Computed example of a mutant assay.
Amino acid sequence: MSTKKRVLITGAAGFLGSHLCDRFIKEGYHVIGMDNLITGDLKNIEHLFPLADFEFYHQDVSKYIHIPGELHYILHFASPASPIDYLKIPIQTLKVGSLGTHNCLGLAKAKNARMLIASTSEIYGDPLVHPQNEEYWGNVNPIGPRGVYDEAKRFQEAITMAYHTFHGVETRIVRIFNTYGPRMRLNDGRALPAFIGQALRGEDLTVFGDGSQTRSFCYVDDLIEGIYRLLLSDYAYPVNIGNPNEISLKDFAEEVLKLTGSNVKLIHKALPVDDPKQRQPDITKAREILGWEPKVGRAEGLRITYEYFKSLPKEELVKQPKEFESRK
């Protein structure tokens, strides 16, 4: 019988979930992936199917879940994470953050497993504090179009801490800032894939507002390293993981134009409702508690990501529906 530790990763076929599966396989774990494939894609994990230490459940974590045998860790990454998704499936977004998290916590309690939840910088809303640190409570519109995602994540943090304090479940909370890299969906509505997709199609790049709103982009390998360290740490409270190198979306669009060599221009449209004006993580806790900070510069990460998008089949370059255009 195998003595390897067993980890359940929900949202395993998604962008981040699939990279986590790769990392835990590399570290010698037995990985159990779970995904209902609403936004995930099996092509992200199909290379793992032949491995004896990987198994997959096609299942909705918002419903009752059961994993036979021992379970040492749970990483809950099952959630729509882009505007194009949570505007189309708002109820499912709320359910996976509430019912799905509750089910995972119940499983963690039953199995005496440690659980890490994927929270988000969106819990800070349109922040009044800059950069954002973990003590900031946020400025969120609970009934706005983004509220289904923001409030699902805020509830997720609350119930996770309740299980930690009331039931003694070992829990970890990562607040993820804008992340990019291979396996992102080209047309998922976020700034980086939207800009690159438009450039690849020869379309003008859409910048919302005057483009002065800022984002901080973290390459996926750096994020996965931070998550791995947090899971194995002794710290139970939220930790920001992201790259503090802040850039305006207008300047970022110019970087994409330079990278792609595209001759298109920038066009401006009205800001989406409740679009955050600033987004920059304070990563003091990550540095001090985890010894973590990002290593991959934006130029290198963008080059790798651009090469990935260029390699995709042409049918994936279809233009996303206008009603879901946004910038996270």
Rank of each mutant, 00 (worst) to 15 (best):
T165G: 01
H102P: 02
M161S: 00
T120H: 10
F166K: 15
K109C: 07
P145Q: 11
Y136A: 07
T120I: 13
F155N: 06
P142G: 03
E170I: 09
I173L: 13
E134P: 09
E170Q: 15
Q132C: 15
F166S: 13
G125A: 07
C104G: 11
M161N: 01
V148D: 00
R154E: 03
I176A: 06
K153S: 01
H130C: 12
P127G: 04
R175M: 07
E170G: 07
Q132I: 15
A158K: 12
L128D: 08
V148K: 00
C104S: 08
E151I: 15
G106W: 05
H164G: 11
L128P: 02
K111Q: 11
G97Q: 09
T165I: 14
H130K: 10
H102N: 08
I117H: 02
K95L: 15
N112Q: 12
D150L: 07
T93N: 10
Q132E: 15
R172Q: 12
G125D: 05
K95Y: 06
K95M: 12
A158F: 14
I123L: 13
N141L: 04
R172P: 08
G125K: 06
E122P: 05
R175S: 04
I123V: 15
E151K: 00
H102A: 11
N103I: 06
Y149V: 02
Y136V: 11
V129K: 11
Y149K: 01
E122G: 12
S119P: 05
M161L: 04
L105M: 05
A110H: 11
A108I: 00
A110Q: 13
A113P: 10
E135R: 12
G138N: 00
P145S: 11
Y124P: 02
V148G: 01
L107I: 05
A152L: 09
N139Y: 03
T160R: 13
E157L: 00
H167T: 08
T160I: 09
T160F: 12
N112H: 14
L105E: 02
E122C: 14
V96F: 05
D150M: 11
G144T: 07
H164V: 07
H164T: 10
R114G: 06
I117E: 03
W137A: 10
L105Y: 03
L128T: 10
H130D: 03
S119K: 02
Y163Q: 09
M161V: 00
Q156H: 00
V129N: 06
G125L: 13
I159W: 09
S121K: 09
A118E: 03
T93V: 06
E151Q: 06
D150P: 02
S119R: 00
T120R: 14
G168S: 13
R172N: 13
V174N: 05
I159C: 05
E134Y: 04
S119D: 01
L107G: 02
A108C: 03
P127Y: 08
N103C: 06
P127K: 13
H102S: 08
